[in-house]
Design a protein around this nucleic acid. Structure first.
Lengths: 197, 197
DNA sequence: ACACTTTTTGACGAAATGTCAATTAATCAG
DNA sequence: CTGATTAATTGACATTTCGTCAAAAAGTGT
């Protein structure tokens, strides 16, 4: 994952933070969050416990900062193709998103798949809500009697939850296939143009 | 919420457990889970700290047992109308579920709305997955090229997530209305029979 | 090679954990 | 009602984690 942004050039702090983050992800593969202590993180990262506090206030603070970095990464991935029609095509934003997740699967598997770290879940949901909201037209919804905010709740939860299940099952489908499934599930009326023909 | 099942007749243990559970829910309204200690729970419940350990191994154990009880409650609520067509009618299981949640809103608001306690989220997702799976016919899916398990991931995540957002927003819609919205969102082709007529 | 920053070390009190044994209080059966 | 049983309280204990020191060691960049 990326280092947020910055003029932090000192390789020592980069190294330390990377070690800490790797240690935390490693530990999350082995135990749930409530069993993880600053002690264990520092030990696994082979740095001193005091050094941890030089970088993060506590574990929740560390998680928050890692979640911020994740949001940056995800948004950058999705923005790569934001020009195209966003959600009704399976090779736009959706595919970029799934490919980004697939190529960082070990991280996302732990963070939103198996061990649920609530803050990552929330942040990702917020990103999805925002992105879906941007590309949402109310025309199709209104004439079907669907409330806009409910559709947004529904869509972002479905997206996030499906990705989580996909990760939990160890990515049995390709990003391409899953993107296509989303399109079929989200907008079934757009899809079957010649079904009855 | 219900006491799981049993021949525990001694009113003292009922009282103690109820006090402990109420205390935990209260505390979750005020702070996140990682700030909650056995000390605080016992203090809030006005029972001795040692008594806590007479009933639960630790806080995760307590959460697990509360989650079990929640699952029992939810399933009982949904089974009340399981004879009817389950998901494509807005007055069947779906409505019963939403009404159950609405009438225990303070509990569910904390547990799956604001403060996310992962285990509750997981257990509820599992219940939804099971229930949706029971009533899922593959006919509509197959001809639309939708994978069965993906549809299940999608449906249960959408249901759970929408309910969570509904709770977070303080139940701005009635259970009836929201159930109807679900039907519209989940099965749009079943719904508009005369739209083009 | 020197000034500056980061990390390490050893240490501290405070708080939380989990577990005792002994005492007090409540409940149930006869 | 009473005695036996079960539950809850009390005070105490060693252990772990927490968050924060100040001083020393190690590293970075100019």
């Amino acid at each position: 994952m990326s280092e947020s942004t910055g003029k932090r050039t000192d390789p020592r702090v980069l190294r330390t933070r990377q070690l800490l983050k790797n240690a935390l992800v490693e530990l999350l593969q082995e135990m749930s969050l409530d069993k993880i202590t600053v002690n264990k993180i520092a030990e696994r990262a082979t740095i001193n416990r005091v050094t941890f506090y030089l970088h993060y206030r506590d574990i929740p603070d560390m998680l928050e900062k890692m979640a911020e970095e994740m949001v940056v990464d995800v948004e950058r991935a999705m923005d790569r193709k934001s020009k195209e029609q966003p959600w009704n095509s399976s090779d736009g934003i959706l595919l970029e998103l799934l490919e980004h997740i697939a190529s960082n699967a070990e991280f996302y598997k732990v963070i939103i798949g198996s061990r649920r770290v609530p803050i990552f879940h929330e942040r990702l949901r917020d990103v999805f809500t925002r992105k879906i909201g941007e590309g949402m037209t109310d025309k199709g919804l209104n004439e079907r009697g669907i409330q806009q905010d409910v559709a947004l709740w529904f869509g972002s939860a479905a997206l996030l939850g499906t990705i989580a299940s996909w990760l939990r099952s160890d990515l049995p489908y390709s990003p391409q296939f899953l993107a296509r499934q989303f399109v079929l599930l989200l907008r079934p009326d757009d899809i079957r143009p010649e079904e009855k023909a």
